[in-house]
C-alpha cells in the first residue's frame, strides 16, 4: 500500500502543478484578443462568487446553516464598509461560534 501512496502523491502533485504552471509559462508574451483579455480580468470576481456561494452556508456543518448564514451576513456588512480582512475573518469565526452556542431555539 505504501508505494501506491507515494505514487498517489506524485500523481496528485503533477496534475495540480501543471494546470497552475502552463498559463504562466505560455501566456506571457502573447497579445490576447480584447475579448479574452476582458474575460480574464473578470475571472477573479466570478471565481470568488462561485467559491463562496452556496458553500459558505454549510461551512460549519450542514446542521449549522443558521449560524453560518448569520455570520455570512455580518461579514458582508463589515466588508462593505471596507473593514480589514483579518477582522472580517475573526468576526466570521466568532459569530458562527457564539450563534451556535447561543441558547435559542434553532
Amino acid at each position: 500500500m505504501n508505494s501506491n501512496l507515494y505514487l498517489m502523491v506524485i500523481g496528485m502533485c503533477l496534475v495540480t502543478y501543471i494546470p497552475r504552471l502552463l498559463p504562466l509559462l505560455f501566456m506571457q508574451q502573447i497579445k490576447l484578443p480584447a475579448f479574452l483579455e476582458r474575460f480574464l480580468r473578470f475571472i477573479p470576481f466570478a471565481a470568488l462568487g462561485s467559491l463562496v456561494f452556496p458553500q459558505v452556508f454549510f461551512s460549519a456543518g450542514v446542521e449549522n446553516w443558521f449560524p453560518a448564514t448569520i455570520a455570512t451576513i455580518v461579514c458582508m456588512v463589515l466588508a462593505w464598509f471596507r473593514i480589514n480582512v483579518v477582522i472580517v475573518v475573526l468576526a466570521g469565526i466568532a459569530v458562527t461560534f457564539f450563534v451556535t452556542k447561543a441558547p435559542l431555539p434553532w
Binding site: 466588508a79 462593505w80 472580517v88 466570521g92 451556535t100
Partner: peptide, 24 residues
C-alpha cells in the same frame, strides 16, 4: 469540535472580505 466547526467559515469570510469592496 465546536471551535473547529466555527473556524470552517474563515476562508469564506476572507473571500467575502476581499469581494465586497470591489462589488461596492
Amino acid at each position: 469540535s465546536s471551535i473547529q466547526q466555527s473556524m470552517g467559515i474563515a476562508l469564506y469570510a476572507m473571500f467575502i472580505g476581499l469581494l465586497m469592496p470591489s462589488i461596492r
